[in-house]
Design a protein around this nucleic acid. Structure first.
Lengths: 195, 195
DNA sequence: GTCTATACGTGGATAGAC
DNA sequence: GTCTATCCACGTATAGAC
């Protein structure tokens, strides 16, 4: 509720994305938020708890994006396309948070890691379910559901490693390309013959 | 040549892969190599120089792998398949080094970063060239060469984020899947590869 | 080349005034 | 809730003996 608490979270996103969690000092975070080093601890118990808050928010947002996408798709091919489009778009539009979410996982305490891991499993399960539906419908050809789901998510996630938010490439363009590639990777070459 | 120097490099791979560069202490590296903290500095000037050596070796190895692959491919579809197979196989078999290579880039000095970046451009160019040849031959359908090349590399690179070297999944199995997906992503419709 | 000992800076977190 | 001042642990790197 306090404005200061959110200013500190924003400052932490900047700092963690720029230098990484371990290399970021609480003094740097405080300074970016225009506060003294001590003020950090009024609003957040530890530096790790700050990271956990960001990571939890980020994972919830990503899960929400993938759960909302594809609900009005006419068939499973369109659904896969929409899931990958939405997931890639989110990672391109939130590449700083995405980098923290993906790369600072091991800096969390084991309890916090376990909580985050559960959200990750929900994201993977959602993609797997879409593939399974498509295979059952006969419109997708996916020999290996689990690994292919992971490969589709990899495309989006790896965005945060190289995507430049200040660059000229529009997020929706790369999302559209990924959606096309996803459709080609999974679509059956033709619909099964009907007797 | 000295054995100690290589023992320290091996120890650094372990430590950096496990905790990340910043969170790794020189004491930890020395301890894993069975030496005193001071001994590190007999063989390596700084901790960053240790990272640079590992990163340079790793990038050279990855570049070499992709340059050797696909040389005897009968056509561009097979070449793309072989490039992705080899690149994914290497990342699965060297996931610890791969993690350092991919995630500790920003911990390098700007001079060292520039050297590494040049090798990365060569890797990207190699994949792009294969796609261009295939399009020219008419066996590949790739509307966006640069972004598609990056997507193909993403599949392999993102392996290091989740691949478990102690898990049960064989490296060649995930490499084969990635090769299949790469072929489906890029092959022209009228020249289907096996899938 | 390896050790023990240590200098020296830095960083997470706290104390206590306002 | 914010500040200044500070504690204290830790980490990189070096000194100097063997």
């Amino acid at each position: 509720m306090t404005v200061a608490r959110e200013r500190l979270l924003d400052a932490a996103v900047e700092a963690f994305a720029e230098h990484g969690f371990t290399a970021t000092t609480t003094r740097d975070i405080a300074s970016r938020a225009g506060m003294s080093p001590a003020a950090v601890y009024v609003h957040h118990a530890t530096k790790e708890e700050l990271l956990f808050t960001l990571s939890l928010n980020g994972h919830h947002a990503a899960l929400n994006v993938i759960e909302q996408a594809g609900t009005d798709a006419p068939d499973a091919v369109a659904e896969v396309r929409q899931l990958v489009y939405a997931f890639s778009l989110w990672h391109a539009q939130n590449s700083r948070v995405g980098r923290i979410v993906q790369y600072e996982f091991r800096s969390l305490t084991s309890e916090h890691r376990a909580q985050i891991a559960s959200i990750r499993r929900q994201i993977e399960a959602h993609m797997q379910d879409a593939l399974k539906r498509g295979v059952a419908q006969g419109v997708l050809d996916v020999p290996n559901i689990a690994d292919t789901a992971r490969a589709l998510l990899s495309l989006s996630i790896d965005l945060v490693r190289w995507f430049d938010p200040h660059g000229s490439q529009p997020p929706d363009q790369i999302a559209a390309l990924h959606a096309d590639l996803a459709a080609r990777m999974t679509a059956a070459r033709r619909h099964p013959d009907r007797f």
